[in-house]
């Protein structure tokens, strides 16, 4: 199963050509985040990246995520409201273990116009896994 997921991830990366480090296998929380965003925001493009490996947490943790959410529903919403929308959808996850969520929220037009390069989040600086 892990191998299949790995292959999917590699294939996905080569198709999208996005320069990010993706987590290899999809975890439970990662899938939950993906489902919630996909169904509630009707995303035209979605990436849920587990960045926990960059932090001071046990291997395989699901604590630090970056999401790239492209949805028509962001139209005419200021940045902070887009972020609040995503935060609210993921409220349960954020209250139960996920403590870092980096968000890229764009409309399909904005995504088309952008260079589509998602930069990796800043390096961890200790913080005792918090």
């Amino acid at each position: 199963m892990r191998i299949i997921l790995h292959k999917c991830s590699v294939l996905y990366r080569s198709v999208t050509g996005i320069k990010t480090k993706m987590s290899i296998s999809s975890g439970v929380i990662q899938s939950a985040i993906t489902n919630k965003l996909k169904t509630n925001l009707n995303t035209t493009h979605l990436e849920v990246i587990n960045e926990s490996y960059m932090h001071n947490v046990p291997k395989g943790s699901e604590t630090h995520f970056k999401v790239v959410v492209i949805s028509e529903k962001f139209k005419d919403l200021p940045l902070i409201k887009r972020h609040r929308l995503v935060n609210n959808l993921l409220k349960d996850e954020l209250q139960s273990g996920v403590h870092a969520l980096s968000i890229v929220a764009k409309t399909p037009e904005q995504w088309q116009e952008s260079d589509k390069i998602i930069e990796s989040s800043p390096n961890c600086r200790g913080g005792f896994g918090k």
Binding site: A100, S121, P122, N123, C124, R125, G126, G127, F128, K130
Partner: peptide, 13 residues
């Protein structure tokens, strides 16, 4: 997280 002279998290930094 941390102080400006020594942030303890990349996002805070």
């Amino acid at each position: 997280k941390g102080v400006p002279e020594e942030p303890r998290c990349g996002f805070s930094n």
